[in-house]
Nucleic acid binder design. Structure first.
Length: 384
DNA sequence: AAGTATAGCAACCGCGTCGCC
DNA sequence: AGGCGACGCGGTTGCTATACT
């Protein structure tokens, strides 16, 4: 049985709002207030669906809306928040006074995603870590060949394929298995935002690269890392991470991953979540976009399918040279998706509370007694 | 100048969630 | 508990201005 339409659409007007309609809606809401959207059009004498009225009011007519271009500060905020929240437009909008979710969504789709896409394509050889998004090169307008909405259509390339067999925990994370693929939606396209804040500390640097001396280290294939799982941080510090198979009997997430993180000092000052032996809980997935695939371990990309040499939190699409971040994707086994969602939700909750007030009295997270260093590290991690 | 492709924005649509009964 | 309505969110579409040939 299908869901009943939100309103009787017979005889209702669609499309652009006229100034007269706007005026009617504004006057009605000024007198009666917001809400009761279903009955509003009838009461106000508008031949519109309630949803349409609500949308028009929220996105266009509200007096507290900020007009004009998105500022560079706002853009940076959007990038930052999007890197941690994904397409939670309303959540992102709540941090940008006067901006609506629709506006931010449109801005992302029309401006930022292309900037990042362009940046990615031009970075197939080396990937500068710090990017001033406001200076990102906007690709020249293409000539001929209508392929519009490419940015949005790209989303259709990815999908969750829940029914395929999952990679078993005992399988080598570096063993490609084309038949066992978990395709994901496109947070990858979004999470790689290249704001200095969001990327700096969690990227894997190329230990062999002289660029480590710069503020803009590069990502590169590294055989050594593959063997040792060694990370080199911006500070110059090296850490070896021992990745252990996920133990399904160890429900670390349900037990409160954040309390674990805080309790066990798993975050370094840079906000990098250190995995250590005995910390069960990483899932392996084969991340595949049709041309290339990569293997992830928890929130870390282990290796691409093509040559198994790419490592760190980013994986390159071999064909296009595009780089995908998968830092917040955790999925794979029987309960991998759910676990990933839990992480995501938890992360979001924490980030929101942090962002709002820096108030660390979140009892469920056992955060009330953490020191400022841990606080900063958590912020860095949540934004990574 | 005219035709066509593209970008950007406004609006629509379907679905999930929440609260009430 | 579950059915239903209302609301909110995110994805998608359609329209229009602009760029380009």
């Amino acid at each position: 049985m299908g869901r009943a339409p939100c309103c009787d659409k017979v005889g209702l007007k669609k499309g652009r709002w006229t100034s007269e309609e706007d005026e009617i809606l504004i006057k009605y809401i000024q007198v009666n207030g917001e809400g009761s959207w279903r009955s509003l059009p009838k009461n106000a004498g508008l031949l519109r669906c309630g949803k349409s009225c609500r949308l028009r009011w929220i996105n266009y007519l509200r007096s507290d809306l900020k007009r004009g271009n998105i500022s560079s500060e706002e853009e940076e905020t959007i990038i930052k928040l999007h890197s941690s929240m994904g397409n939670r437009w309303s959540l992102i909008a709540s941090h940008l006074p006067g901006r609506t979710d629709n506006e931010i969504k449109n801005y992302w789709n029309s401006h930022l995603s292309r900037k990042i896409h362009s940046f990615r394509r031009s970075s197939s050889e080396t990937l500068p870590m710090v990017m001033d998004s406001s200076k990102a090169e906007i690709p020249p307008k293409r000539k001929g060949g209508r392929t519009s909405r490419w940015a949005m259509k790209r989303n259709k390339t990815y999908y969750i394929q829940k029914d395929v067999p999952k990679i078993k925990p005992k399988d080598s994370p570096l063993t490609p298995n084309i038949e066992e693929v978990l395709l994901l939606p496109t947070p990858d396209l979004e999470q790689e935002t290249f704001s200095s804040t969001t990327i700096n500390d969690s990227m894997v640097l190329d230990p062999k690269s002289n660029d480590n001396k710069r503020e803009s280290p590069v990502l590169r294939s590294d055989e050594a890392w593959k063997c040792e799982n060694q990370r080199l941080y911006a500070s110059g510090e090296k850490k070896t991470e021992t990745l252990v198979p996920y133990d399904h009997d160890q429900e670390g997430i349900d037990g409160g991953v954040f309390n674990d993180i805080v309790d066990n000092d798993l975050l370094d000052p840079d906000g990098v979540l250190a995995l250590s032996e005995g910390r069960g809980g990483y899932d392996i997935i084969d991340f595949n976009d049709g041309n290339d695939s990569a293997f992830m371990c928890a929130d870390k990309m282990l290796a691409t399918h093509e040559d198994l040499q790419e490592s760190g939190q980013f994986s390159s699409n071999g064909d296009s040279g595009e780089w995908y971040s998968c830092s917040s994707i955790t999925s794979g086994f029987d309960d991998g998706i759910e676990r990933g969602n839990e992480i995501w939700d938890e992360k979001e909750k924490m980030l929101s509370s942090l962002w709002e007030s820096d108030n660390w009295e979140g009892d469920s997270y056992n955060l009330s007694e953490i020191d400022s260093d841990t606080h900063d590290a958590m912020v860095a991690w949540l934004l990574s």
